[in-house]
């Protein structure tokens, strides 16, 4: 019986916590601040991709 109550209560607490966290993230714009930090790091990935040169079509 305790277990039956424990699970939803825990879920509710976790949910409430996540909700509160999301509110904080939303209001203080933490999501975009994180993206701003991640952007230059992830950008380096693209420098490693091999790019095929663009050749003109055969005309001659």
């Amino acid at each position: 019986m305790n277990k039956m109550i424990k699970i939803p209560v825990t879920a509710a607490c976790v949910g409430a916590g996540l909700f509160a966290a999301s509110l904080l993230i939303y209001f203080f714009n933490l999501d975009m601040k994180l993206m701003a930090l991640a952007e230059p790091i992830v950008a380096k990935w693209y420098d490693r991709i091999e790019r095929r040169p663009m050749e003109p079509p055969h005309c001659g």
């Binding site: 999301s22 509110l23 939303y26 209001f27 203080f28 714009n29 975009m32 601040k33 993206m35 701003a36 952007e39």
Partner: peptide, 22 residues
């Protein structure tokens, strides 16, 4: 900076609406 310091407080109803969209 790259982004804003924080999001706006638009009053309860509008902020809640904006939050849901976010």
């Amino acid at each position: 900076g790259r982004t804003k310091v924080r999001r706006e407080w638009r009053g309860l109803a509008d902020t809640w609406f904006d939050y849901k969209c976010w």
